[in-house]
């Protein structure tokens, strides 16, 4: 009987402890929480080791066995490269013009910041969350709220940074919200994650004009993501809710197949990231 009461007391104390931990705001700049940082530092080397082993085995397959279509693929890629070089030559003059105009109107310089290439070594385990574990942390310059991208577009932001690894909240996480503008019309809105892993454009004024296929880029007004990062494209118009338009959004980055990502270091929220591709 005595032991039974002791067990209930222990259970109560443990649950109270967990409840208090959950109530403490450990998410946010400077509040990473030493428990989480310690456990991440201890556990992620094991995760990284397993990932390296699996990647090594996969490398043997993709490097030797799966090269049957390489020649055809090579030709396709050459054609694509030629197309992109022409496109780049055209864009270069536009970039130079923009730079001259920025100097002329005395606008602030774009803040490119540094980039840290990281490998995805783990993914969130539950249906209600959408997070990744990457193998770079504060020792590599990544901090909480650093934006994480691929050359295709925005992936998410760092929500916990340990010394050698970080947890990244994807933009499809139900708790994620990104301030965006429609690239053409500059109509502002919010791209929010949903529990069904889709992206949704919300808080767009009823008079704002946009259509299926319009590109969405970060506006920088949320103080987290730098301005100009591709987020996705409108894939389906949704209903009007509370006088606000909604739409379904197809992400620019393939969030389901992430292997390598880039963390943006020191990219101020008001800065412009013109080209998120690696150097």
């Amino acid at each position: 009987m005595e032991s039974n009461r002791a067990t209930w007391l222990i259970l109560f104390a443990v649950l109270l402890g967990h409840g208090m931990l959950a109530a403490v705001p450990t998410v946010g700049p400077g509040r990473a929480g030493w428990v989480r940082t310690f456990l991440l530092d201890v556990l992620t080397p094991i995760e990284r080791g397993v990932d390296a082993a699996v990647h090594g085995v996969g490398g043997v397959w993709s490097g030797y066995v799966a090269l049957l279509d390489a020649r055809r693929e090579n030709e396709v890629l050459r054609d694509r490269l030629a197309e992109l070089e022409i496109q780049m030559a055209r864009d270069r003059s536009a970039v130079l013009e923009a730079r001259r105009l920025r100097e002329f109107y005395d606008l602030p310089d774009p803040i490119a910041g540094g980039r840290v290439a990281a490998r995805v070594i783990g993914r969130d385990a539950t249906t209600s969350r959408e997070t990744l574990t990457i193998d770079k942390g504060t020792m590599h310059g990544l901090e909480v709220n650093a934006s994480v991208v691929t050359p295709a577009g925005l992936v998410g932001r760092v929500i916990h940074a340990a010394h050698w690894s970080s947890t990244v909240q994807l933009i499809s996480d139900p708790d994620s919200a990104v301030a965006v503008v429609v690239d053409e019309s500059r109509v502002p809105g919010i791209v929010a994650g949903r529990s069904d892993r889709a992206l949704r454009l919300e808080h767009v004024d009823a008079t704002g004009e946009f259509r299926v296929g319009d590109r969405l880029v970060t506006s920088g007004t949320d103080g987290v993501y730098p301005r100009g990062l591709p987020v996705g494209a409108v894939s389906e118009l949704g209903p009007i809710e509370n006088m606000m338009q909604t739409a379904r959004v197809r992400p620019a980055a393939d969030l389901g197949r992430l292997e390598e990502v880039l963390g943006l270091v020191d990219a101020a929220a008001t800065g412009v990231v013109a080209d998120p591709s690696p150097d």
Partner: peptide
């Protein structure tokens, strides 16, 4: 109680959930 707590805290730490959330439920 110990197993549920440890599993939950490990899960919370690695996957970015608010610390204590899975610890509470798993316990």
């Amino acid at each position: 109680i110990a197993v549920g707590s440890v599993l939950g805290v490990l899960q919370d730490s690695l996957y970015g959930t608010a610390l204590g959330t899975n610890g509470f439920a798993k316990t």
